[in-house]
Simulated scan of single mutants.
Amino acid sequence: MSEERGLFIYGIVPSDVEPTPDASGVGDPPGEVTVVRHGRVAALVSEVPLETALGRPADLTAYQELLDGTAAVAPVLPVRFGTVVTGPDAVADLLDAHGDRFASALDELEGHVQYVVHGRYEESALIQSVLDDNTAAADLADQVRGQPEETTREQRIRLGEIISQAVELRREAENRDLLDTLGPLATSALARPPSNELDAVNAAFLVEADREDDFVDALEEFAEQRRGLIHMRLLGPLAPYDFVSAHQLAG
C-alpha cells in the first residue's frame, strides 16, 4: 500500500519565481521544492507524507532558509509553518480564492526585506545601573550582601521586585527609542514581545533594499551608545514573517 502524500506550502510568490536547483524542503529525506502557479501568483511547495509529523529543528531550519533565500531575490508571503494540503488542486484552489489579495501584498513587499533587532541586557551591568539609580534598591542590596538567604528573604524578594519593575520600564523606554531611531528608515516597524526577562529591545522592521545601509549604520550608532549595558544582535535579511499576518493561512 503506497504512502499518502500531500504538499507542504512554504510561501506565496510571484508566478515567475523559480526555486534554485539546490533548494531543499522539509522532511527526511528533504523534499524537492517545486512551484504551483495560478495567474499572477504561485506557491512554493514540496511533497511530504501525510502521516509524518513535521516539527524537527531541521524542518524549521529548512522552512526558514527557503523563505529567507527567496526574500533576497523576490517578494514572498510566508505561510504558517506546518501548512499541508492534499495536492496541487488544493493549492490551485487556494491561489484562485485569494490570488488578488496575495498579488497586491506581493506588490507592496517588492524590494523589501525584514530585519529583527534584538538586544539583551548584560545582567551585572543592568543590576549595577538599577542600584545606581534607585536608593531603595541600593539600601536593600547592602542589607542582603553577605547575609544568609533565610534571614534576608523578605529584603531579597523586595529587591527582586524593584529590579524587575525597573527592567520593564527600561525595556519600554529602550523599545520606544529604538523605534523612534530606526522607524523613519523603515517602511514599517513593530515591537515584538520579550523572549527573556533580560530582553532590552526586540523589534521587527520592514526595510527597502536601497535603505539597508542607512538602517544598519543607524543601528550601529544606537548599539554603540549602549555598549557594555546591552548586547545587540541584528537578524536578517529575512522573509517578512512579522508583516504578513493578514495573509498567513491556517494549517
Rank of each mutant, 00 (worst) to 15 (best):
V73E: 11
G119I: 11
V48L: 08
A223L: 04
A58V: 11
V35N: 03
G111N: 00
A125M: 13
A239G: 05
R40G: 07
V17E: 14
L185W: 06
A53K: 14
A97Y: 12
T135W: 12
P49F: 05
A43W: 01
E161L: 03
T187H: 10
E168A: 12
V33D: 01
S245G: 11
E110M: 05
V73N: 07
A103H: 06
V36T: 06
D139H: 04
L140Q: 02
G87V: 14
D177P: 10
L77A: 02
D214I: 09
R171P: 07
G160F: 12
P148K: 00
N202M: 02
A62G: 07
G6R: 01
I12A: 01
P29H: 00
V79W: 10
R145Y: 13
F81P: 11
V17D: 13
T70R: 00
D177E: 14
S195M: 09
G146C: 07
E161Y: 07
L140F: 03
H231I: 08
P88S: 07
A239D: 03
A189M: 02
V244G: 07
E224L: 15
V113I: 08
A203Q: 03
A74C: 13
G25K: 05
I230M: 03
A92F: 04
T152N: 06
D242P: 07
V91L: 00
Q147T: 05
Q248A: 14
E149A: 15
G251Y: 04
A92W: 06
A200E: 02
P78A: 00
F222L: 12
V85R: 00
R145N: 11
E18V: 10
R156K: 09
L106K: 02
P30E: 02
E47R: 15
R145C: 13
L67A: 00
G99V: 02
R101W: 07
L238G: 01
A166H: 09
P75T: 13
Q128N: 14
S46A: 13
L179C: 03
G160S: 04
D210T: 10
R156I: 07
L109E: 08
V84M: 05
R170Q: 14
N196G: 15
V13N: 04
L54H: 12
V167S: 10
H98T: 03
N175K: 11
D59W: 07
L7D: 05
V17Q: 13
S15G: 04
D59M: 02
L7F: 04
R153M: 05
R56L: 15
V35D: 06
T135A: 13
D214E: 13
A138E: 07
